[in-house]
Design a binder for these strands. Sequence first.
DNA 1: CGCTATTGTCGCACTTTGAGACAATAATAA
DNA 2: TTATTATTGTCTCAAAGTGCGACAATAGCG
Lengths: 239, 239
Amino acid sequence: MQAPPPDDYLPHLAYDSVVFGFSGEQLKILIMEYHQTKWFALPGGFVGRDENLNDAVRRGLSERTGLDDVYLEQFYTFGDADRFRPAVMDAILKANDLVVPPDHWLLDRFISVAYYALIDYNTVVPRPDALSDSINWYALDELPPLLFDHEKIVRRALQTLRENLGKKLVGMNLLPPLFTMKELQRVYEAILGEKLSRSSFQRKMLASGLLERREKRLLGGAHKAPYQYRFRRESEEIG
Amino acid sequence: MQAPPPDDYLPHLAYDSVVFGFSGEQLKILIMEYHQTKWFALPGGFVGRDENLNDAVRRGLSERTGLDDVYLEQFYTFGDADRFRPAVMDAILKANDLVVPPDHWLLDRFISVAYYALIDYNTVVPRPDALSDSINWYALDELPPLLFDHEKIVRRALQTLRENLGKKLVGMNLLPPLFTMKELQRVYEAILGEKLSRSSFQRKMLASGLLERREKRLLGGAHKAPYQYRFRRESEEIG
DNA sequence: CGCTATTGTCGCACTTTGAGACAATAATAA
DNA sequence: TTATTATTGTCTCAAAGTGCGACAATAGCG
């Protein structure tokens, strides 16, 4: 989908996305930096006047990561009246040679609908948008100071992800199509922030019926070669 | 808090609330009916330009139920572009002798942030607002046809409530301050839509540490008199 | 005063979970 | 080629949790 023309957005409404990736060791999220400003924030955007909210978020995600079919979940809408800094927004716009009238909604308060996404860290080439210098991965415990209430948004995203991890088994969305049980367990441990029992984890994962076992991997790793697994999409679940 | 003056709301933004109550037998929700129109909808409202989103919802809830300290939880934001009916909104406004210009945001699309509330059915005296004839309790399986996507909102509210029931033990918010174990179990069964094992339920509730047992009730009921319980607020939990 | 339905609790079987033990095995070193 | 070593897949066992029924206690009723 195409982005709407510049001023054809719903006023006072934005979305922010917490994009999770797993580096192999750590859980990370995408953070963007505005031009010239040293200000860091979550990637977000606006909703076109005729655009579904969910579509707007997918559009922004696709623009920044190149990925189209992504696990995405809305988790909270932040609506406090004081969650904006007109001076900050003004500076960001000025740094990009954008001028808006002083009573424009861009300089007023925002409601922001927050989403989190789970993506395969390795297939992403982060692309900055028009307003930002860079967009990069940051480990959760090494985040730069974020604008507005974005740190609160990140905390809540992680909290929701942890809760959903138990009831939806979404961890495999952070991995490449083929992965080992150990890699999957590392993902879970990174999300939950605690060690898990190896045998129990394996048992539960296999019992879930969501994994399909492939042949052995031979390559590389010393010691016994592990199986590889594939995430079985819901359409092909076993009854 | 006072309601803002008529035209001082954030455009294109609304909230809807699914207010749950428990009649003793059934789970019910509050539904309002617009003046003259036979149209039913969830109680909702708008957000003042300088008002926190959560405060706006509490304000609306307080106006309609008279209750101030209510269990309230945001669960989803509905943002599809087609979730509005300009003709319907126009008719509602006309039936109340309200005139807005044809390009007013009230006749355009809405983003709606949805909340559910759990309240003590018996302490509520539903009060219609300026736009509605009536506001009444309806059992979940006897709802009238609702406007817009409000039926979808109700379904999702119930789904979220069921999920949260397990992890937060919120059922007691639907009961008066003192209640018996059987009443509490009835609440859970009404929410989940299934029978629960009596002894397991009792065991788990007592183990949660959220209930404080009082003396026997003597009054009324034939057969052995049950204990009464009180919901222990978080501040007084046992460690 | 006995009958009956309901309550609080216990016991039992079954399932789930955590922790360790075991053999199998693939790369490395001898 | 063979021994070593770390890792994997599976198993066993104990601990904890859960569903289900049994039991005595008890309050109202006839």
